[in-house]
Design a protein around this nucleic acid. Structure first.
Lengths: 231, 231
DNA sequence: CGGAAAATTGATAATTGTCAATCGTCGTGG
DNA sequence: CCACGACGATTGACAATTATCAATTTTCCG
């Protein structure tokens, strides 16, 4: 997996190992961070899938983005105090745990790592921009197509799939809450993509069958990213 | 305006003055940064209103967020290369111009400023999260109410209004493109808010009349923010 | 094998979008 | 000062998309 990320210098490795408090393994469905809470920790995803979401008081839920290896969990909360969103594991996950309180040390003593942190935050912002465009302006079918290739390409980039392809471990409820659609309409929309042979409902998730076609349906150029940091 | 922001140390001020290349004043409607472009500059908003947006090839436009004094313009592009969104002035704006190439110096030599940068990026992410929740899960009326108080509170916090209240300088087309609605439906929705006496269409923009009621309609707690950095 | 959770479906209701005018306001040129 | 245009706001009618309801199937697991 790591060949996708930038190499570390020795002092960085030394620091990271002291900054690191340990590893955490969680089951699918575990809530890692909860909205309204202040966590003493900050995490890096080592393995598995997770997602960030917000809810309205009456229960309506919006999934904001998905998390995969290399993503930071809880940076917002670390910088700004209380969490304004929750994070839940979609599959079993392995996380690297850091101490929130020591975040500032990174800035003062390891500027390259600080730069990486900001880079990662910026990348998250970029994904949110794309998701906003999607929910705001794409039709249901376009949104679904976009979401599935988007997740597929991201997952492939961090080697989350065993082979060249693989299964995206989400239920239709997750898709619905990501796309801002009802679950019934989501089902009908995904079904349409399946009928056209672009995706397949497999085991406990979706499999992408025709990457190119999905990108066309979703009016999306694809997920381009060069070397990236991994903290 | 500046009492809202954190104070600087002298060395920071000295650095900022060398990092700063000059100021830029633009008319309403000017495109400051364009999607697909690489800018040699990075900006800080000193005065005025602007907005970030993305478009699909067929012209559908989604406004991602609005920019007000203290916001950074173009950080994403500075960190990641090509701009993936455009930025346009909504009103006449004053911008402080920085050299993109020297961004790294901030990280190596002015860690507090670097921290501030990341803080600002994180805050932007938080706003995007809220906007996503809005577009994905709120009804048209809720979205409109949320957007108007949101802009109202942000603008008030940075003293963009002359008195205690003021006018938000947006057209209904802007509102529509922010909320992900058609312009006709946006008009009918805003009209409903106006009939209830929550907002008023004035001169060339909207004025908030009943902040509390808007927050209730929009199921929103309000915009809380303590001290914040200003670069 | 029994249940529970997730996926499907068909029918019907709301919400939101599209079309096609019309109305107003404001700045410009005559 | 007034007519002309342009852009933005408004409206009403009608169409399309998406949501809600209410069952049924499937699939997964113990």
């Amino acid at each position: 997996m790591l060949d996708h990320f930038r190499p570390f210098t020795q002092p960085e490795l030394d620091f990271v190992s002291t900054f690191k408090m340990g590893e955490l393994a969680v089951e699918a469905g575990t809530t890692i961070l909860a909205e309204g809470t202040r966590s003493a920790h900050l995490y890096t995803v080592l393995d598995g899938w997770g997602f960030r979401y917000k809810m309205l008081e009456d229960g309506r839920r919006q999934i904001l983005n998905f998390m995969m290896p290399g993503d930071l969990v809880g940076l917002q909360g670390s910088l700004m105090g209380e969490m304004q969103h929750s994070v839940e594991a979609l599959s079993p996950m392995a996380l690297c745990v850091f101490e929130r309180a020591r975040l500032h040390e990174i800035f003062t003593n390891y500027s390259d790592l600080a730069y990486d942190l900001t880079w990662i935050a910026s990348r998250e912002e970029r994904m949110l921009d794309e998701n906003l465009l999607s929910i705001g302006r794409r039709t249901a079918l376009e949104r679904a197509a976009y979401l599935l290739v988007f997740l597929f390409q991201r997952a492939r980039a961090v080697k989350l799939f065993a082979g060249p392809s693989g299964i995206i471990p989400i239920t239709q409820q997750h898709v619905a809450d990501t796309l801002g659609l009802s679950i019934v309409h989501t089902n009908k929309t995904l079904r349409k993509l399946a009928q056209r042979g672009l995706v397949r409902w497999a085991d406990r998730g979706y499999e992408v069958l025709d990457e190119q076609a999905l990108m066309e349906v979703g009016h999306w150029d694809g997920y381009k990213e060069k070397r990236r940091p991994f903290i």
